[in-house]
Design a protein around this nucleic acid. Structure first.
Lengths: 129, 129
DNA sequence: CTGCTATTGATAATCATTCTCAGCACTTTC
DNA sequence: GAAAGTGCTGAGAATGATTATCAATAGCAG
């Protein structure tokens, strides 16, 4: 059960972190393929869910597919995402954390977790339109 | 292009509003079928996306499927959802609205929208475990 | 180097969702 | 009330993303 280091996993990690925003597993696979890597689709999916499980990547669902992005490990944060180009900014939201916890408690809910993401058009995409 | 009133659409609307929490299209279809309705799967999907488009239902994505729920039309709100039984409480979040807007503006983003949902275990599900 | 076993990858299988299209059912018109 | 027009329905096919299968491969310890 020892975890092994393979070039495939590193390739996925690298491709993820060189991306500005959220990317789908499919497009990450295509990108790796086009850059000459003979990596397999199943492996990309496995690597991505591993990274997400270890806290090295964030994921969110959009339009029926999962998008992934490298994130700063160990920190809890949310995202501000351009809905046109996918550019993503990590944002702190202590106020929202506290709000979520208190709302949950008010209604008798325990073990609160939350999904908070903000979408918009980034400055660059605005100027293009 | 006039919209017609059919018993199928009403059946979906009824099944949605008699549910306590978010339901998937598939399970709504199964439930309707089991209660004797000969409705078709495609029709359930169509009715749900119509309702969502008209603002009579909210939707969210979870684990690769879309979940729907009847909501109070015309009002913007968020949800507190039991991750065990699906029980859902509509919550107001003016503070969060303002926060989202200002965060977007701070980073040069326009046309902000946001996804804010809080998950937890409801009081009832806690006592069961 | 050798053996053990986690990992890979081509492909099949799954699953939710959407599309297709012929038949059906409201509505309006005569 | 019958015929025509057209939106709606539903069974099944098509799609697209994700996961499972499983034999072959390749890290890693000794």
């Amino acid at each position: 059960m020892t975890k092994r280091v393979t070039w495939q996993r590193e390739a996925v990690r690298g491709a993820l972190s060189s991306s500005d925003g959220f990317v789908s597993a499919q497009s990450l696979y295509s990108a790796l393929r086009e850059s000459g890597s003979p990596i397999g689709l199943a492996t990309v999916y496995r690597a991505l869910s591993d990274l997400a499980g270890e806290g090295e990547a964030d994921s969110l669902q959009q339009e029926g597919e999962s998008l992934y992005r490298a994130c700063t490990p160990g920190s809890h944060h949310h995202h501000l995402i351009c809905r046109n180009c996918g550019l993503t900014v990590e944002i702190e939201a202590d106020a929202v954390e506290a709000w979520a916890a208190s709302v949950a408690a008010d209604h008798g809910f325990t073990q609160p977790s939350h999904v908070v993401d903000v979408f918009g058009l980034c400055a660059n995409c605005q100027s293009l339109s």
